[in-house]
Amino acid sequence: MKEIVLEVRDLVKTFILDGAPLNAVDHVSFQVHSGEFVALVGPSGSGKTTLLSILAALLTQSSGEVFIDGQQLSAMGESERVKLRRSRIGFTFQSNNLIPYLTAQENVEFMLRLNGTLGKVNRLRAEELLARLGLEDRLRSLPAQMSGGQQQRVAIARALIHNPAVVLADEPTASLDTERAFQVVQTFAALIHENQRAGIMVTHDLRMCKYVDRVLQMRDGKLVNECKTRIEIEALARGEH
């Protein structure tokens, strides 16, 4: 039995829009286990980015609870949330992902630097992880000298290097062509599984779901469907849902 790394209980996030309350996230509950890669899908405005922001400890919920690695987010102060993001969460973003004045290796090592664990051994790990992602000849390259796919792979390495409990990806393939998008998600999924992390990927591209273990579909802030089986997931990825 795999342990629960991320647990969301009856989560609500309310915004006031034109004077009226609007539940961007509306009583959402789910769990993610270690080694599990989950896709969060839904149309624009369905609340998936708001949900991801709460899971990333970037936004506070209106009600409900989120537990990451057993830690209750609502009980944390701002400095504890910063520390949690630094040590227990890994991120990849849609764009502006990497620090532009750091090389690929420095970007990855930056997470180790933030956590005070940058040593000889971890430097080697960072190099190995980048090599694993096919970037062994790009270690000294700045983001501007790399393609979008290469940048996303560096971001994946950065998201995993410090052994976080949860890895969150916000539209990681949005700026990539289809072939590169598939490669990136496939690599991401493989690393999540190998390293036994809990991974959540927000995407509007259902084709990317074929590499995940579970799909959560959102609409109007609610979880409206959950695809658990391979057959359901592949049907969804083919656009049959």
């Binding site: 910063v82 040590s87 991120f91 502006n96 992902n97 990497l98 620090i99 997470m111």
Partner: peptide, 13 residues
């Protein structure tokens, strides 16, 4: 701004 956002999101104080 986005770059500083990323720095803070990944845990820079």
């Amino acid at each position: 701004v986005p770059q500083i956002g990323v720095l803070k999101a990944i845990g820079s104080s």
